[in-house]
C-alpha cells in the first residue's frame, strides 16, 4: 500500500503495509536513522517525531495514520543551510548530550514545547519531557539547554 506524507519539508511516497509503524517507515524505508528506537513500547521517547507539529512516539503510531501529514524528524531541525536550531545548539553548549541516544527524541519534544511556550519555566520543561527517558545525564543539563535556548537564566 502506498503512503504519501511530507517528511522534513519534502513530499515522499513509500510502500508501507498496515502493520508498519511510522518509525519503521522513517528508519527502514527512508533511511532517516536519526530517530531512535529504544523500546517500541511507547515508553522511552527516543522515537519522538513531530506530526503536524505535535510530538508523538513514532514506534507505536501506525504509518498510515500519518498519511498527508507533515512529519519533522531530528534531521529536519537544522535550516536548509545546515545551521543548527537554537535548541540543538544549546544542547551542544550546555553538555546536554552524553551517549546521545535519547537526544533526538528530547530535541523534538522540546522543539514543540518552545513553539508553544517561548519561555517555559523549569518545572514545566521537566513535565514536558516526562515521556522522554535519559539514562545518562540526570536531566539537569537538558533543562539548562532549554533555558539557554529561550534566553532565560540558566540556574547552574
Amino acid at each position: 500500500m502506498n503512503l504519501s506524507l511530507t517528511v522534513n519539508g519534502a513530499a515522499v511516497t513509500v510502500e508501507a503495509d498496515g502493520a508498519d509503524t511510522l518509525l519503521m517507515v522513517l528508519r527502514d524505508r527512508l533511511r532517516l536513522t536519526g530517530t531512535k528506537e529504544g523500546c517500541t513500547e511507547g515508553e522511552c521517547g527516543a522515537c519522538t517525531v513531530l506530526v503536524d507539529g505535535v510530538p508523538v512516539d513514532s514506534c507505536i503510531l501506525a504509518a498510515h495514520s500519518a498519511a498527508g501529514s507533515e512529519v519533522q524528524t531530528v534531521e529536519g531541525l537544522a535550516d536548509r543551510g545546515g545551521a543548527l536550531s537554537p535548541i540543538q545548539q544549546a544542547f551542544i553548549d550546555n553538555f546536554s548530550v552524553q551517549c546521545g541516544f535519547c537526544t533526538p527524541g528530547f530535541l523534538m519534544t522540546l522543539t514543540a514545547l518552545i513553539a508553544e511556550d517561548p519561555t517555559p519555566e523549569e518545572e514545566w520543561v521537566k513535565a514536558a519531557v516526562s515521556g522522554n527517558l535519559c539514562r545518562c545525564t540526570g536531566y539537569t543539563t537538558i533543562v539548562d539547554a532549554v533555558m539557554a535556548a529561550t534566553g532565560q537564566e540558566v540556574a547552574r
Binding site: 536519526g34 530517530t35 543548527l84 553548549d93 548530550v97
Partner: peptide, 21 residues
C-alpha cells in the same frame, strides 16, 4: 576547563551511526 564535545554535533543532527544503525 570545559570544552565542547566534538561528538555532540553529530548526535544533535541525528548523524551519529550507533550499533543499531
Amino acid at each position: 576547563n570545559s570544552f565542547i564535545r566534538p561528538d555532540a554535533e553529530p548526535k544533535v543532527r541525528g548523524e551519529a551511526v550507533y550499533g543499531v544503525d
